[in-house]
């Protein structure tokens, strides 16, 4: 299978590889997929509490080149966006940007799921913290 130049670029120079401290209250972590299925993506966001903007994002992916590229691209795209803006990122935009063939569409779906899961995790942590703060006062 031939890969698009953009997939190759992300595979060879993945952006924002790494991990954020998942115990940091400002960090949301999304882990989607399963090893038996051949893809697992971990995507993390660091949210600026003042502005509600995603200040940083990191990923690690077990999967094919297209899965690596989709998650690498996802971290680039969420950075600088508010949570609501990031939630609007659609897998079809990833497909178009990376010129993914039909058999690789599931990689883009997984990347979209990873963004959503990270945001959900962040929101859940924040809600728990606020509930705790409410009780304390």
């Amino acid at each position: 299978m031939a890969y698009s130049d953009k997939v190759l670029d992300h595979y060879n120079n993945p952006r924002n590889v790494g991990s954020l401290d998942k115990n940091d209250p400002r960090v949301g972590t999304g882990m989607v997929g399963a090893p038996e299925c051949g893809d697992v993506m971990k995507l993390q966001i660091l949210v600026d509490e003042e502005t509600g903007v995603i200040a940083d994002a990191k990923f690690k992916t077990f999967g094919c080149g297209s899965a690596i590229a989709s998650s690498s691209l996802a971290t680039e795209w969420v950075k600088g966006k508010t949570l609501d803006e990031a939630l609007k990122i659609k897998n079809t935009e990833i497909v178009n940007e990376l010129a993914l063939p039909p058999v690789k569409i599931h990689c883009s779906v997984l990347a979209e799921d990873a963004i959503k899961a990270a945001i959900e995790d962040y929101k859940r942590k924040r809600a728990a913290r606020e509930a705790l703060a409410g009780k304390a006062s």
Partner: peptide, 8 residues
């Protein structure tokens, strides 16, 4: 493996 969440 540096990229792999499983390895981590």
């Amino acid at each position: 493996r540096e990229l792999s969440p499983l390895y981590e």
